[in-house]
Design a protein around this nucleic acid. Sequence first.
DNA 1: CTGAATCCCTGCCGATACTG
DNA 2: CAGTATCGGCAGGGATTCAG
Lengths: 137, 137
Amino acid sequence: MTHRTVGHPAGLPDDPRAHVTAPTPDCPVEITLAALHGRWTTLVIRELLRGDRSYSDLRAALPRLSDKVLSDRLAQLVEAGVVERNRRPGWPPRVRYALTPNGHRLGPVLQALWDWGARTSPPDTGAESSRATDPVH
Amino acid sequence: MTHRTVGHPAGLPDDPRAHVTAPTPDCPVEITLAALHGRWTTLVIRELLRGDRSYSDLRAALPRLSDKVLSDRLAQLVEAGVVERNRRPGWPPRVRYALTPNGHRLGPVLQALWDWGARTSPPDTGAESSRATDPVH
DNA sequence: CTGAATCCCTGCCGATACTG
DNA sequence: CAGTATCGGCAGGGATTCAG
């Protein structure tokens, strides 16, 4: 057993940023939340976790997502180092979006978010509640 | 090795909600993000991960957080099943805020958020980069 | 096909003042 | 001590239109 700064489960690392007194952009938690920030963001990432996608692939997969928000999100994710944008020469213009290595590392993060939410709100037909939290299936 | 729905690391569970096409409140990821939603929320949770706190304890720990937002956040977290509010009889009024069991389970979630953010943006004086991602210390 | 520009409306959050 | 009431500024995001 390793010792802990306080007697509580799952403490945060002993980093100066673990003691900040306001939500600064330096805090690693804020960095991640900034990358995931905004509506639709996690769904775009989920699509890209399944493989590369073109702009219209994403539009087709998320029909209610408007062009403005989609390009906003993609720009935000590129900026955050989550997504890579690859334009191919020729006509018509073809662009592929893919996760960077950092982007793939968001998989476990989304998994953690999923797990907590799945436990908190039971799927609740009442019958088959055991499979929803299975890690991979 | 368990098999996977797609050949990518850290797939999501095979749940119908993993295929939603819009950000619905049913999605476990959305549930968790809703619990964490808004400025200051994670910092309030961090304080409570360190132990029970009174209202003024929280105000003292987060001096730039206004009364309005603090009570908003606490109400939000109570509503989300993360925080429990305990009033003690007598005068002056004494109230203690504590995490519920569900609230404590947010520890690993915040840890996952921390880890990704810590990797993505190096602390980078260049020297001591190995301890920042240590799980507990 | 892949976006960018604009408009407008809503909801967040910060500051201040007040109450049981 | 532990909050609520109110107001104003600003950013987020949806619909539509235009461009390379």
